[in-house]
Amino acid sequence: MVQLSRLFLRKYGNFVDNLRLYVRGGSGGMGLPRLGGQGGKGGDVWVVANKNMTLKRFKDKHPQKRFVSGAGANSSVRALKGETGKDKEISAPIGITVTADDGKILGELNVEGDRLMVAKGGAGGTLHTAFEPSRGQAKHIRLDLKLIADMGLVGFPNAGKSSLLTALSNATPEIASYAFTTLKPEIGKVLYEDYKQISVADLPGLIEGAHLNKGMGHKFLKHMERTKHLLFVVDVCGFQLASKTAYRSAFDAVQLLTKELELYKEELVSKPALLVVNKMDLPDAEDKLAELKEQLQSPQEFFDLFPEDAIPKNCITFRHVVPVSATTGLGVDHLKRCIRESLDEEAERENKAIHEERLRALRNQ
């Protein structure tokens, strides 16, 4: 356990997916009572999306995590209207959600150059304020990074997700024969002959109760929100996380993973999904695969063995069920084709929906 804790600190310590910052808009400038002058407005604080920025780099560059914009200039005989204070821009990674201390979402930055004002500068002094300026807004905000990927790998520890990501892509995650090897997200790129690239995110293995923030629960479940498709990965022979925990078959794993996603955010299970049945090089794998496929055809018939609170409201219908062996490469090329096919089908469906919406809008003009 001590070794696992040290591994967690070492591996996860290099990955940052949230930061808390202090931001303050600039104070306004003083007005000039004698001549009715108006003080300049204080500068605003903005968060701006930058594709070259990461939260780790941000943290290293700004250890104080404190951002204050410029004050507005006082009104003077030479300039009755004081100059506006200089804005402060905070470069942040693409894929950031900005929230206030009370949990209110202020906005999201999803595209290079997206801008969000997080603290407004104070007004300059005028006749209506007895020429007294106001202070700028001051608050703490939180930057939360949610990885953006075409595919998100979902699975319990030791299902072989890291090995699968290596087999599919150019990523080189740490791989070992014990649970919890992956302690930070990894992104791999699947390359195709026509130069199409698909991004795949490997997240640390979930545990039962992840929706309650057990293990690394919410820290990594949130990344599922921005993946276009889900790629469930299960061990064909099932798994047992520890000697004191129950053995779970591949079918159990599918339903429990579905339940964890559902309890965290119900709309997650409506995403298109594929099922990868891994470790097909193990003995009796073919028989266990046949059993799993039969169970998936009528999953409700097997729910009598589940506790009531472990049964998902809605079972996922997988677009493809693909048996593979990530270590030997068996089925990996077929899986790549299935991933591409599923993403292309969904893109075509979305484009068709957009086209139909535009036609309806034209008819209603």
Rank of each mutant, 00 (worst) to 15 (best):
Q3Y: 11
R6T: 03
Y12W: 12
L19V: 09
R20Q: 13
L21D: 08
V23I: 09
V23G: 04
R24M: 10
G26Y: 03
G26F: 04
G28T: 07
M30T: 09
L32H: 07
L32I: 02
R34S: 03
R34I: 03
L35P: 00
Q38D: 01
G39I: 07
G40R: 02
D44Q: 10
N50Q: 14
K56W: 06
P63L: 03
P63R: 01
Q64K: 15
R66T: 13
G72Q: 08
S75I: 03
L80G: 02
G82D: 03
K86L: 11
T99S: 13
D101M: 04
N110R: 14
E112I: 10
E112W: 12
D114Q: 03
L116A: 12
M117D: 03
M117G: 04
M117L: 07
G124Q: 13
G125L: 01
T126Q: 02
L127H: 02
T129E: 00
T129W: 01
F131M: 03
F131Y: 11
E132H: 08
G136Y: 04
H140C: 06
R142P: 01
R142F: 06
D144W: 07
L153K: 04
V154G: 08
F156D: 02
A159N: 13
S163W: 08
L165M: 11
A167F: 05
L168K: 07
N170R: 05
A171L: 13
P173D: 10
Y178W: 11
A179F: 05
A179N: 05
F180W: 04
K184L: 07
G188N: 14
K196D: 06
Q197E: 15
L203T: 02
I207P: 07
E208H: 00
E208F: 00
H211C: 14
L212F: 05
N213P: 13
G217F: 01
F220W: 08
F220E: 08
L221G: 09
K222T: 09
M224T: 12
E225M: 12
H229R: 12
L230G: 09
V234D: 02
K244N: 13
Y247T: 11
A250Y: 10
A250L: 15
F251Y: 15
V254Q: 08
Q255A: 10
T258D: 10
T258H: 05
E260C: 04
Y264W: 04
K265P: 12
K265F: 07
E266S: 06
E266Y: 08
L268Y: 04
S270Q: 13
P272F: 14
N278G: 09
K279R: 05
K279L: 04
M280W: 11
M280L: 12
M280K: 08
L289K: 15
S298E: 15
P299R: 06
P299Y: 08
P299K: 07
Q300S: 15
D304W: 13
F306G: 02
F306A: 01
P307R: 00
P307N: 01
K313I: 01
T317C: 02
T317Y: 03
S325Y: 11
T328R: 06
D333G: 06
L335A: 10
R337E: 14
R340E: 12
A347V: 00
E348C: 05
I354Q: 14
I354H: 10
I354E: 14
H355I: 02
H355Q: 06
R360M: 11
